[in-house]
Write a protein that binds this DNA or RNA. Structure first.
Length: 247
DNA sequence: AATCATTCCAACCGCAAGACG
DNA sequence: TCGTCTTGCGGTTGGAATGAT
């Protein structure tokens, strides 16, 4: 399994995986042109990058796609076409390769009923009123009832609550925004969407909804990670919005 | 049990875009 | 402005696994 210049090709061995993992844990992602040498791998940089992104990277979700993942995939594909990386960006733990493979094997070839239904819709139905995503924050009167979900507040548009002068896409604002939240002591609960009941879904609702009025629940312990996840979701929605807005 | 067909997914390839000198 | 290098993306392929006969 050697290609030109003696570079190894084909399936990765366990030893190669370990070497690649160790290299990236030590030096971090990026600089792929340096990875084969520093990892001691007889592989091309593209092969290393692909192996990491599609298989070795932490938090990659294996196994079958859940029904809600498929549903979201179908909706996003309807909007974005074969832009697998953008679609995968909205499916936590799934890679662009996963999404593409799933689409080609499960949905495209088999003529999924979902696809059929979507194709039956007139084109003008597809063009939803996409509202530009905005950072949202919590109202000040939140109360958390221990152990049980309680509707105690709602998400409100940022300008109603706190002055956040920078937009999400301005580079430095991501950290500043997050730091300001974590320091203010007001944001100490996690939020789920009242419609789907899942964590971190509010940004998605912002993206999909034609009306911007998602009520929110407060349901859990303090998790800084949740706010960061929210922020990650929001920036992805901004990416999608920009793509759609450009077309 | 053997053979052939199909499915599925990891990996490869070529291209485009961005960074940089 | 141009050329080179690197990265990231989508399309495609190869082969292992599974199912059918």
């Amino acid at each position: 399994m050697e290609g030109t210049f003696g570079v190894r090709k084909g399936a990765w061995s366990e030893e190669e995986d370990i070497l690649l993992k160790q290299c990236i844990q030590k030096h971090g992602e990026g600089k792929w042109h340096l990875v084969p040498v520093s990892a001691g791998l007889n592989r091309c940089r593209k092969s290393c990058r692909l192996r990491w992104l599609n298989y070795l990277k932490p938090n990659i979700k294996r196994g079958n796609f859940a029904a809600d993942e498929v549903d979201l995939m179908l909706r996003l594909h309807k909007l974005l076409g074969n832009r697998w990386s953008l679609i995968a960006g909205r499916l936590p733990g799934r890679t662009a390769n996963d999404v593409k493979n799933y689409w080609n094997t499960h949905l495209l070839k088999k003529g999924s009923s979902h696809i059929t239904k979507l194709k039956e819709k007139p084109q003008d139905m597809v063009k939803v009123n996409v509202i530009k995503p905005q950072p949202w924050t919590f109202s000040k009167n939140l109360t958390w009832l221990s152990g049980k979900p309680a509707i105690v507040g709602s998400f409100q548009k940022k300008e109603d609550i706190r002055d956040i002068s920078q937009t999400p896409m301005q580079s430095e604002s991501r950290i500043n925004w997050w730091e300001s939240l974590s320091n203010c002591g007001e944001l100490d609960e996690r939020a789920t969407c009242t419609q789907c009941g899942r964590l971190n879904e509010v940004p998605k609702e912002i993206f999909w909804a034609e009306e911007m009025a998602p009520e929110a629940k407060v349901v859990g312990d303090t998790l800084d990670e949740d706010v960061l996840n929210y922020w990650g979701d929001l920036s992805l929605d901004m990416d999608l919005w920009e793509v759609l807005n450009a077309e």
